[in-house]
Amino acid sequence: MITFADLEAAQRRTAPYVRRTPLIAVDPVADAHVWLKAEYMQRCGVFKTRGAFNRQLAARTAGELDQAVGIVAASGGNAGLANAYAASTLGVPATVFVPENAPPVKVERLREYGATVVLRGGEYAEAYEAAQQHVRETGALFCHAYDQPEIVAGAGVIGLEIVEDLPAVDTIVVAVGGGGLFAGVAAAARERGIRVVAVEPVRIPTLRAAMDAGQPVDIAVSGIAQDSLGARRIGAAGWDAARASAPVSVLVEDADILAARAALWQEYRVPAEPGAAAAYAALSSGAYLPEPGERVAVIICGANTDPTTLG
């Protein structure tokens, strides 16, 4: 399981390559104090850049990164962007397998980062299988979208930063897809006794389904946030984190996600993609109702979206 020490090591390793994003105070919700962790300002516009650098830098140090063969990733878009950017920065080639329905804005940016983009299948699971075949054929370093220790620890630095910038924080609200960000943040929160609210779309409840079944299970993937939260099941890291310290599990409707996304743009000029708006939707929809005076940090984890749809 990822530890607080793993987060500190990831923070030291990645500091020269990533941005420390701000924690921004916004309007209260139900008399609770609310901050937005502005991870949408991260390089590549998404939190996954942290894990990508942590994975690739750690592999390079360990002699596991072949400079000629490079890395491979499977992604609905954001993990691919992050790993392609990290590979470009470190001077190694990247191949990224994406579902055929990946947003064009993300596919175009992948190519801008110099990645070889391969469209494969209708959802993340099919792109993942194609990427695994590529690993077997080439020996490329596989960079998982959410379920490798270095990926999780890199993402968890976000929780570490929140704790450092707001030591009195009571609650951290985080969107869940495959569970890497949740697992990393949970490692930071567990150390300090902080509540974690795990938010999922009603149509992609990977964590809730696992909690109900007592183990990770496959689910159907659909809805407005499937390009970034569209894992078929919760990853091992996310499941381990949930068993270690059960989060508050919250589900939000697609309509609530869209309303939260519109509110973030109209009120704060935050260009959140739907998956990133899911966390704020927990508050704006009332799915999670904080106590008066509760200090709540909401992670807005990505901004790779078509700006013409922001309203």
Score class of each variant (00 low, 15 high):
residue 220 A to W: 07
residue 21 T to F: 00
residue 145 A to C: 13
residue 135 V to F: 08
residue 221 V to I: 10
residue 234 I to Q: 09
residue 44 C to P: 00
residue 76 G to Y: 03
residue 255 A to L: 10
residue 243 R to W: 12
residue 262 A to V: 05
residue 280 Y to G: 01
residue 195 R to G: 06
residue 248 V to T: 15
residue 21 T to G: 09
residue 56 Q to T: 14
residue 303 A to E: 06
residue 155 A to S: 14
residue 281 A to E: 03
residue 176 V to S: 05
residue 305 T to K: 00
residue 307 P to Y: 04
residue 277 A to E: 03
residue 251 L to F: 08
residue 94 A to F: 02
residue 64 E to P: 14
residue 47 F to N: 04
residue 58 A to Q: 09
residue 163 V to T: 07
residue 207 L to M: 13
residue 84 A to R: 01
residue 125 A to G: 07
residue 78 N to T: 15
residue 131 A to L: 07
residue 251 L to M: 12
residue 263 A to T: 11
residue 39 E to A: 03
residue 261 R to D: 09
residue 79 A to Y: 05
residue 67 Q to N: 02
residue 9 A to E: 07
residue 65 L to K: 13
residue 137 E to M: 06
residue 211 M to A: 11
residue 173 V to I: 02
residue 122 G to Q: 11
residue 193 G to R: 11
residue 157 V to R: 02
residue 232 R to E: 08
residue 169 V to K: 03
residue 24 I to R: 15
residue 96 V to I: 15
residue 87 A to S: 14
residue 103 P to D: 13
residue 241 A to I: 03
residue 220 A to R: 12
residue 288 Y to T: 04
residue 221 V to Y: 03
residue 64 E to A: 13
residue 292 P to F: 10
residue 44 C to H: 05
residue 254 D to L: 10
residue 104 P to F: 04
residue 171 T to A: 11
residue 218 D to P: 02
residue 184 G to Q: 05
residue 149 P to T: 05
residue 140 A to Y: 01
residue 236 A to W: 11
residue 262 A to E: 13
residue 16 P to F: 15
residue 204 I to K: 12
residue 14 T to L: 00
residue 67 Q to K: 10
residue 103 P to A: 15
residue 284 S to P: 00
residue 102 A to I: 00
residue 205 P to Q: 08
residue 153 A to K: 02
residue 123 E to D: 14
residue 9 A to C: 04
residue 96 V to L: 04
residue 216 P to W: 04
residue 18 V to K: 01
residue 31 D to N: 14
residue 94 A to V: 09
residue 94 A to P: 01
residue 11 Q to W: 08
residue 136 R to A: 04
residue 307 P to F: 01
residue 42 Q to C: 05
residue 193 G to M: 12
residue 245 S to Y: 15
residue 23 L to W: 15
residue 197 V to R: 02
residue 133 Q to K: 11
residue 82 A to Y: 10
residue 225 A to H: 02
residue 281 A to Q: 03
residue 10 A to D: 05
residue 192 R to Q: 11
residue 82 A to P: 09
residue 310 L to M: 14
residue 35 W to Q: 07
residue 185 V to Q: 08
residue 95 T to I: 14
residue 208 R to N: 14
residue 190 R to D: 08
residue 99 P to S: 02
residue 302 G to H: 02
residue 145 A to W: 07
residue 214 G to K: 12
residue 261 R to C: 08
residue 75 S to T: 12
residue 283 L to I: 01
residue 113 Y to D: 00
residue 279 A to D: 09
residue 8 E to F: 01
residue 124 Y to Q: 07
residue 239 W to Y: 13
residue 250 V to T: 09
residue 189 A to W: 06
residue 171 T to I: 03
residue 231 A to M: 11
residue 279 A to H: 07
residue 80 G to M: 04
residue 166 L to S: 07
residue 94 A to K: 00
residue 67 Q to T: 10
residue 160 L to H: 09
residue 298 V to D: 02
residue 307 P to R: 06
residue 290 P to S: 00
residue 111 R to V: 00
residue 25 A to I: 09
residue 280 Y to S: 01
residue 169 V to Q: 04
residue 262 A to Y: 12
residue 78 N to C: 15
residue 229 L to D: 13
residue 219 I to T: 07
residue 256 D to P: 13
